[in-house]
Design a protein around this nucleic acid. Structure first.
Lengths: 112, 112
DNA sequence: CTTCGTATATCGGATTCCGATATACTCCGC
DNA sequence: GCGGAGTATATCGGAATCCGATATACGAAG
């Protein structure tokens, strides 16, 4: 189980805000990142399958009722895994602040 | 050019602390992450090649002199790319603080 | 009935990861 | 000089992952 990509971490994070179905995860991630992270159907549903197999997410009870929508939520292990990844990012940023603080300026100038 | 993995970002970060050769990058990353990120020869040298092809790093002048050591340093584009990745991590952490602050506790207490 | 947006699923090419393997040099003790 | 350990670089091959293209289905709007 390789460490999840940024896109997948964003998916996990979206789910940490409450249970939701695949397409809603996609929209949540795209909206929240301002379009920086875009999830095609391949990335989205394959990641969901993998995440479910690994026990990081699970289908919520009373999920696929009406129109085939499957609602997912984070498991305990999923929350733990997310915490680990988040800490890794925090570690990188901490090192960056030590080694090269000028790389972390908030004067984004251009974009969003 | 897919976004670099955490391991590669660590490599870039090591290089942002000054020019060095491959093996030194490996040691730097492993030491700084406390062994969390381990770079085998495959990961290390293939990432170096890719990074050089993409113009993110370059061989320093007077590099492969003595014992075949190749010394690398970050290019301008490399610094810019590193900044982008760092900002992405920062964005994820910012969202995490908003959505699920309890996932970012500094009580590193438990394991290593 | 046709079109559009939502929603899910699978396929296939390309990329990346990373351990195993190979080579070569240097320092050290003997 | 010889053998071993650590340093240093490079390539191969299997596996995992990414992600656009494609397909299906449903409901609302025209």
């Amino acid at each position: 189980m390789r460490p999840p990509s940024l896109a997948v971490v964003h998916m996990l994070l979206a789910l940490s805000g409450g249970q939701r179905h695949g397409y809603a995860i996609k929209q949540d991630v795209e909206r929240r990142t301002g379009g920086d992270i875009r999830l095609g159907p391949g990335t989205l549903y394959e990641a969901i399958q993998r995440l479910e197999e690994d026990g990081l997410i699970e289908e919520a009870p009373a999920s696929a009722d009406q129109s085939g929508r499957r609602v997912y939520r984070l498991t305990r292990a999923g929350r733990a895994a997310l915490r680990v990844e988040l800490r890794r990012y925090d570690t990188v940023l901490a090192h960056a602040r030590t080694i090269a603080p000028e790389l972390i300026d908030r004067t984004s100038g251009g974009g969003a």
